[in-house]
Design a protein around this nucleic acid. Structure first.
Lengths: 208, 208
DNA sequence: CCCCCGATGTGTACGCTGTCCACAATGGCA
DNA sequence: TGCCATTGTGGACAGCGTACACATCGGGGG
């Protein structure tokens, strides 16, 4: 589990610290990412971390980027599972739903990582940098963006409403995720969340 | 600013601590609510707080409830500013927009309090308790809920879609708030936020 | 081949936090 | 009047992030 070592030099401490951070974030969200604990799990003195990260926030940023990559993977998975119906427009709409469904699936399956990924300060200006990408090379925002492009091509969304369409789409899905995970809607049962998800996706589908 | 005192007993320490907490939350969100600092600002020893709150979380909960009350006030203000057009349904829809606009106005005007109010664990089961109400006695969720009822009465929303309509409405607006305040959309200019708000409210109006 | 230097990890220390324990002052009620 | 529950104090502890000085390594130039 925890990286051991025999040499004085660790080998790849930076990666080990991020890995430890991910594990902590998984269990307790961003607040649970403790710098000292990460060094402990990497069998290294507390200060060693400062050779790789300016401060705790820098480590947390790296963990968040990794978590966004995992979210991207989950979204890609959901998108890939959409079976074509022959109707190009219906498919495009189904794919948009899938991005949202994947996002929310990640939120439910990995609430700690979800919160870490998406509630830590990051500028939009760098929402599509490589470190946030999943294994297919696309960051979450990028997946959504390209899906919306596809929807326009397929005639499922008037071109004049394409601009900034990411915002309402993302916001509604993200909002449900946050409300359900650690907001006032925390108590909802799985069934209720599933229903709520469908409800939100319906609204986006209809209202975008 | 800070409450002074001459007596051994403070008088209303509980309220003073909450007040101090609100001020800290205003400036730095939930993480900035420091128990010791609150006691310092109330000219009291650190442990005095434990006579009124079980732990830091309990203080934070009280602050969050107060912040929700302020959000409610902002929403009420926005709703009240809607001028009647004579068309009952148009008015009802405008009022729904106003609840969302008020919510987001609060998010932009008081980001720290907004985050404190709505990202701290609270069960939905107690989303409408009195301590979260604004000066008109309604909690944020309650305002939304009753506004939706009004929309149904006015014929602006089919009754069969009323159930759980709070979820998509709240989620989309809340999501935008979170994304804009400390999420990946943090960098947006005021104009962009205004535009995004309108875009989201349009979607809700159309898609609910 | 060796040595030396930059990169990496260690040790010690500081101030801050939340929280526990035993003790002190107060003031309202019997 | 005297007592006792309520409220506030003092001291202590572990854990956190982080700064500064020092130790150890490994690879490249002489």
């Amino acid at each position: 589990m925890t990286a051991q070592r025999n040499n004085y030099h660790h080998g790849d401490l930076r990666e080990a610290l991020i890995e430890a951070g991910i594990e902590m974030a998984r269990e307790g969200g961003p607040d649970a990412v403790i710098l000292r604990e990460a060094t402990r799990r990497s069998s290294v003195s507390p200060n060693a971390a400062y050779r790789h990260f300016a401060d705790r926030q820098a480590l947390l940023d790296a963990v968040a980027a990794a978590a966004q990559g995992m979210a991207a993977d989950r979204m890609e998975e959901e998108v890939a599972s959409v079976t074509s119906t022959g109707d190009q427009q219906a498919d495009a709409r189904e794919q948009l739903r899938a991005t949202g469904a994947g996002y929310l699936a990640f939120a439910r399956e990995q609430p700690g990582l979800f919160r870490t990924a998406f509630s830590v300060p990051h500028d939009m200006s760098e929402a599509m940098t490589a470190d946030k990408a999943g294994q297919l090379g696309r960051a979450p925002f990028q997946i959504l963006s390209e899906t919306l492009d596809g929807l326009v091509s397929a005639g499922g969304l008037p071109a004049e409403r394409r601009e900034n369409a990411e915002l309402p789409a993302w916001a509604s899905v993200h909002g449900l995720g946050m409300l359900v995970i650690d907001g006032p809607l925390r108590g909802l049962t799985d069934d209720m969340v599933t229903a709520a998800t469908a409800r939100v996706l319906d609204m986006v589908d209809r209202g975008l």
